[in-house]
Design a protein around this nucleic acid. Structure first.
Length: 850
RNA sequence: GCCCGAGUGGUGAAAUCGGUAGACACAACGGACUUAAAAUCCGUCGCUUUCCUGGAUAAGGGGCGUACCGGUUCGAUUCCGGUCUCGGGCACCA
């Protein structure tokens, strides 16, 4: 399966999202790589030069968790897992070019993460600033969102706090306009749903940024924020309806007010409790407290109260929002809760405004016009926004602004098992980049994390280094990079895996952009967006010549399985694998109770979720491969569902795939002597029954070809069943029959080869069709075999199927209408009425409307 | 909470552009083969038998049926509006 950059063939680069080496393959992997393998083998039969590589997303949190649990170094754990999973992949018979294997935790790979990071620093795309993280006050460590459960640390149970620390950011927002435009224009080969999700994630919004004014001074006597409190709104037409403002707990005005207000200081502290995940922020109870400060409305000149709101985030825009309760649902709820005034400024024709209950139309900007807004009364949305904006501009207090929901990419992780960020922290010079010649900054592989912070902080060999600028003793940055960086460009490294002088080279020029990318729908936003951004940065640095890395995308559906758990006395959760649990079902097959097999005690059912390490619900396909072989596992996985659909795991039906394998084998053994030396293919003067049989075979082949081209592999597998059924039904032993059987089995073996390569390869050789099915051509449909004298149309009366109509296949619309007009079904079902209209769908049906 | 999907027999599913709903399988049931079992092979398999013909729960016909409610159309699993349920993502799981 090794491939080179040959120019005599058309290239095709088909790649799966690289796996995290969690220990064993699970069914999601098997599904992903089998899809990839079917595609690769099929396209090779079609004459393409096909690259199918594989690698390892080898850095990440699970290795550290395993280290804590088993006291094994993450490096050893990771390398052991890779070795095991690679063996499993080989047992599956995947057509992988292993000479191109990429392992993200090896210095020859992550060196280039560091190198590109330094280039981004030079270009101003990367920068150091503060970030907000989940802080566990007991373990004194930063936690991932996954490690925060109900606002508490997963190991300590301590209430998590938000904490600001320094970190590095990549300026992806700068690329937002291009990412958005290319989502819409350059990704026709992507699923619509993924493009929509990315579009919404980038979230362009056009609005107005403007300032409320004030004269509030800090302790040093300086005006806070130069006397301006900025907010952003997409609804400038409602500015005259502002009845309060809300700022984040970290906003300078909030801090200032808290110095003389104990209750407020307590409230601000409370706002810092809990994690940083957006879902938590969005679902928590909205709370606020009046700061006692007031700012001046820039247009009305009225005084407006400033509140602190726990739902306002300092990291979004300016950390302050205007409150218009009459026309914003969240502000409406907030105002009702705290008894704030509600001022209607948009006349709503469709609904009666009520200050008690919210109605969707209160926020409708399409139909309403301004009211209670002075000179803006009567203006519609667009004209009001324009008029208000020009007044704000004239006062030098605002301007139109396009903002994005997308936030810059924070890449610093306070963790050991990742790419070291190549910076040196000098007491004199500050944060100094590691000189390019000193790359890679090698991560020591002998650390064992214990859950209480980053072990690099106490690793003298790693930590201590001379400052590149002033040569004084300094310390390395101990933060490592987000592992999304590793997965943002590995697919390019597959093209030049051994290149030591550059990140990418001629191989990437040949293979990229990737023709087909395959991976789980759960990566629809983050991974794919980061990879697109990283590619554009590489392009801007002159490393590659294309804008988008993935021409076509197949988002494989998730493999889901039931989860089972017990809550331990200390509140922690223990998850049990479905294979260790017996489930009792009710009469409808719904699970009602589950029992752990080892101790016969009940376990809780945690619902159906994606197979994942964290919930221990991944099903190991090894049992399947051991019991039935790789072909059965592949056949079953492809048969079970359309590649893009969610698959609820159940192994019922595996026996059917195995049975099919055996039927095929037995049939081939039976006919082997009969078709010895017979030339497969069309013979003149076949009997009608054999002609019909050939028509069936080629019609099925036509359908299979159509389906394999549109990546609908489940029905390609079905076509294999249909072909075998058709062949086993055949009786007779004359030369014509033998020729049709030989033709049929040669089609069947090639149609199924991409799915079940081992069995079909052996039979292809045994039956004397050739030495190497791997490079046999995909079978061609014999159009002549499909021809028929008559075709049968469906006959409908008033849209209900009432019979059939046999017409000559050459009959035109008028001829069919004439035949249909005298159909006896009209009298039978037409209730005595005459045909009013006859609808003819060529090749399909006739509908007579009476 | 917000964004994106999905929902079809007992089960997994199919139906290429709006045109015969349930291909192909699994399970189940009935039969053949066998001393017996396994394996294999053949057959039945959406609901309705208080809708009709029939002695009949055989057979045939009719009606209903693609989560639910409504709409567009000669015709809707497919398009539109709404609802429910389930799944994915929400920026430090990968």
């Amino acid at each position: 399966y090794r491939v080179t950059e040959r120019v005599d063939k058309k290239k095709f680069y088909a790649c799966s999202m690289l796996p995290y080496p969690s220990g064993k393959l699970h069914m999601g992997h098997v599904r992903n790589y089998t899809i990839n393998d079917v595609m690769a083998r099929y396209l090779r039969m079609k004459g393409y030069n096909v690259l199918m590589p594989m690698g390892w997303d080898a850095f990440g949190l699970p290795a550290e968790n395993a280290a804590m649990k088993n006291k094994v170094a993450p490096a050893k754990w990771t390398y052991d897992n890779i070795a095991y999973m690679k063996k499993q992949m080989q047992a599956m018979g995947l057509a992988i070019d292993w000479s191109r294997e990429v392992t993200a935790c090896k210095p020859d790979y992550y060196k280039w993460n560091q190198w590109l990071f330094l280039k981004m620093l030079e270009k101003g795309i990367a920068e150091r600033r503060t970030q907000v993280v989940n802080w566990d006050p007991v373990d004194m460590t930063v936690l991932a969102n996954e490690q925060v459960i109900d606002g508490k640390g997963w190991r300590t149970g301590a209430v998590i706090e938000k904490r600001e620390i320094p970190g590095y950011y990549l300026n992806i927002v700068k690329y937002a306009p291009e990412l958005l435009e290319h989502t819409l224009t350059k990704l026709p080969g992507w699923p619509e749903r993924v493009r929509t999700m990315q579009e919404n994630w980038i979230g362009k919004s056009e609005g107005v940024r403007f300032a409320f004014t004030h004269a509030i001074k800090d302790v040093s006597g300086a005006l806070i924020g130069d006397g301006k409190m900025y907010v952003f709104t997409t609804r400038a037409d409602t500015i005259m309806g502002v009845t309060f403002c809300a700022v984040a707990a970290e906003h300078p005005l909030a801090s200032h007010a808290a110095t003389s207000n104990k209750a407020l200081a307590t409230f601000i502290e409370e706002c810092k409790k809990g994690g940083v995940a957006e879902a938590d922020m969005a679902t928590m109870e909205k709370k606020g407290m009046n700061t006692g400060l007031q700012v001046t409305h820039p247009l009305s000149g009225e005084k407006v109260d400033v509140w602190v709101g726990n739902y306002v985030l300092m990291s979004y825009g300016d950390g302050a929002v205007m409150g218009v309760p009459a026309h914003d649902e969240r502000d409406f709820a907030f105002a009702n809760k705290y008894g704030l005034p509600i001022k209607q400024v948009i006349a709503i024709p469709a609904a009666q405004f009520s200050s008690e209950t919210w109605h969707e139309s209160f926020g409708d900007k399409q139909s309403g016009v301004c009211m209670n807004s002075g000179k803006y009364d009567g203006l519609t949305y667009a004209t009001a926004v324009n008029a208000i904006t020009s007044d704000l501009v004239a006062k030098n207090l605002g301007e139109k602004k396009t903002t994005y929901r997308l936030r810059d990419w924070g890449i610093s992780r306070q963790r050991y098992w990742g790419t070291p960020i190549p910076m040196i922290l000098c007491n004199t010079c500050g944060a100094v980049p590691v000189p390019e010649k000193d790359l890679p900054v090698v991560l020591p592989e002998d650390c064992i994390p214990d859950g209480s912070g980053n072990p690099l902080k106490s690793h003298a060999g790693f930590l201590n280094v001379a400052c590149p600028k002033c040569a004084k003793p300094s310390q390395r940055e101990t933060d490592t990079m987000d592992t999304f960086i590793d997965s943002s460009w590995y697919f390019m490294r597959y093209c030049d895996p051994q290149l030591s002088t550059a990140m990418v080279g001629k191989g990437a020029d040949y293979w990229m952009p990737m023709d087909q990318y395959i991976g789980g729908i759960e990566h629809a936003i983050l991974h794919l967006l980061y990879a697109r951004f990283w590619t554009k940065v590489m392009r801007d640095l002159g490393l590659v010549k294309f804008d988008e890395p993935f021409t076509k995308l197949l988002t494989q559906g998730m493999v889901l399985a039931e989860t089972f758990y017990r809550k331990n006395a200390d509140g922690s959760m223990e998850w049990f694998n479905p294979s260790d649990v017996d489930v009792e079902t009710d009469a409808h097959g719904k699970p009602v109770r589950a029992v752990l097999r080892s101790d016969s005690q009940p376990v809780m059912m945690g619902g159906i979720e994606k197979m994942a390490k964290s919930k221990n619900n991944g099903v190991d396909p090894q049992d399947l491969i051991d019991a039935y072989g790789a072909d059965t596992a592949r056949h079953f996985t492809m048969r079970a569902a359309h590649p893009e659909d969610t698959l609820f795991w159940s192994d019922a039906g595996v026996a059917g795939s195995y049975r099919f394998m055996r039927r095929l084998w037995d049939f081939a053994q039976k006919i082997a002597p009969q078709i010895q030396g017979i030339k497969p293919g069309a013979h003149a003067d076949l009997a009608d029954a054999l002609k019909a049989k050939r028509r069936d075979l080629h019609a099925t082949l036509q359908k299979a070809t159509f389906d394999i081209d549109r990546l609908q592999y489940n029905t390609v597998v079905s076509a294999g069943d249909i072909l075998l059924n058709a062949l086993t039904e055949m009786k007779g032993d004359d030369a014509h029959t033998r020729a049709v059987i030989a033709e049929g089995i040669s089609i069947l073996l090639r149609v199924l080869y991409p799915v079940t390569p081992h069995l079909t390869f052996a039979l292809w050789k045994q039956l004397g069709f050739g030495e190497n099915l791997l490079d046999a051509p995909w079978p061609l449909v014999d159009e002549a075999a499909l021809k028929q004298d008559n075709i049968t149309l469906v006959l409908q009366i008033n849209g209900k199927t009432r019979g059939e109509l046999v017409v000559p296949s050459a009959a035109d619309r008028a001829a069919i209408e004439a035949l249909a007009g005298v159909a006896p079904e009209i009298a039978r079902y037409g209730e005595g009425r005459a045909p009013k209209k006859i609808i003819v769908v060529p090749g399909r049906l006739v509908n007579i409307v009476v």
